[in-house]
Design a protein around this nucleic acid. Structure first.
Lengths: 147, 147
DNA sequence: AAATAAGATATATTTTAAATACTTCTTTAA
DNA sequence: TTAAAGAAGTATTTAAAATATATCTTATTT
């Protein structure tokens, strides 16, 4: 059971941006890709989606860049994960479109797995971006060291 | 976020076997593969592992087959999922071997995701095979209809 | 107005892992 | 001793994730 790197990267971008407390200052994709040592091209998609979902502001053109659109305390991690992760089809019957399991009408498994999934997401629903990037000075130092 | 079909099939095999209350009666791979309409070859690996993990008894040779090695109430779903699913590396830093994320020493995300994962597994830890196959007569009917 | 630097967007390719298939071996009851 | 069952290893296929490439759009600066 894994989350996609896509979700991982989304969260990392948010963490990165949360260290820039001066909201007038912009970051850019290149800088973030370099800080984490990950593909710039892949990050572009991640960032595009974060923008579409309203978490970050993207400014095109020369001297453009990106910044958080909301205060870190307003960004809920459960919500980010739900929006970013493609699906939560733990087993076949979670996806009615492609379910071929004959016993699903009377099987107790789906209900149990669904409860477990809800418990998982509930934990994340209690956490904001602010909570997971509390240690801003240390984070800033680490990002600086990649420059 | 998904479980592998491997885990899905493992659970389905256990559910199938739990409908045979007469413990002297054996089922076989072919019959189960047919009942679910899934690959017999893939099921063979699933069943081999279930045997190795002590959940089922496999009897070779003519008139051989498989049956539950334990009472359904003794088979814990959380345990089955933990043993069957390859890993639970939700994000890169869950796997120290392959972690390259620079901020992991001071990042609050791992801890949060780990709590969420534990919450998920805890729900499954409260459930036994008996709980999810309560509706035995209906299950048996469905399996019969595939023959 | 032109040049440039930023993100937007679509498509293509590569990589990886999961799923499946195939083959040969071992066991055991009829 | 043969047939039917699982054991076990290897090979292939498939699907999805990750990455790369290319072109377009926007906005700023000169």
């Amino acid at each position: 059971m894994r989350l996609t790197n896509y979700t991982d990267y989304s969260l990392r971008v948010l963490i990165y941006l949360s260290t820039t407390t001066d909201t007038s200052k912009l970051s850019n994709i290149k800088e973030i890709a370099h800080a984490y040592g990950i593909s710039k091209n892949h990050l572009m998609k991640v960032i595009y989606q974060l923008g579409k979902n309203g978490y970050i502001e993207t400014i095109r053109g020369r001297n453009g860049g990106i910044r958080l659109a909301l205060d870190p305390s307003q960004i809920n991690i459960g919500e980010v994960v739900r929006k970013t992760e493609e699906d939560f089809h733990l087993v076949e019957c979670f996806d009615p479109e492609n379910n071929h399991c004959v016993i699903s009408p009377v099987c107790g498994l789906r209900h149990v797995l669904n409860s477990a999934l809800q418990a998982y997401l509930s934990v994340l629903d209690e956490v904001t971006l602010d909570d997971i990037s509390k240690n801003r000075p240390a984070l800033t130092d680490l990002f600086q060291s990649t420059k």
